[in-house]
Amino acid sequence: MIEEHLDFNLLRKCADCGACYNVCPSCLYIEGYDPRAVIKDILKGDFEKWLHSEHIWQCLECHQCLELCYQHYGFENAMTAMRLLATKKGIHPAQVKRGWDMFVKTGRLGEPAMGQRKRLGLPEPKKSGKEEFLKLLAIYKERKAQEKNRGEAEL
C-alpha cells in the first residue's frame, strides 16, 4: 500500500545519504526527530508504529531537503506519505480534522474578522466562491466514487 505513495528506489538512496540533516529545521532543533529511522522502517515494511508517532507531524514542509537533494526527493515525501496513511486510519491531531471539516464545509480555513475590519475602515470583503466550491466538491466526490467502482470491476 505504501509503495503507491513512495518511490522505493529513491528512498533507498535517501536512507543512505542524510545530507539534509544539516538543513532540516526539525532535525536541527527538535529532539528525537530522525527521518532516516522512519525511512529505514518503511523500507523494511515495518512502519506501522510510526503512524502513531508525533514525529511524522513535525516535518515543517519547508522544502529545504527537497532543494538540497540530488534526487529532488527528500525526507518530506516520506513524511507526507506517513501522514496520509495515518489520516486514512483516523490517527491524526484533532486540529487537522477540525481544519479539514471547516474546509469542506466553507471552502476556507477562516472567515474574515468583520468587526475588526470595520474598525480599521477596510472595505467589505468580496464574496467567496463557497457555493461554486461545494458544487465542485460534489462533482469531485462523484468522480472518485465512479473511479473506485470501475477499479473494483476491473479486479
Binding site: R83, L84, F103, K126, S128, G129, Y140
Partner: peptide, 21 residues
C-alpha cells in the same frame, strides 16, 4: 479585488489528506 476565491488550499492540511481535491 476578485470575487470567488476560496482557500488556496493549504498544503499541509488538504494535500496530505486528498491530493486530487
Amino acid at each position: 479585488d476578485c470575487e470567488g476565491f476560496t482557500c488556496c488550499p493549504e498544503k499541509s492540511l488538504i494535500n496530505n489528506i486528498d491530493h486530487g481535491l
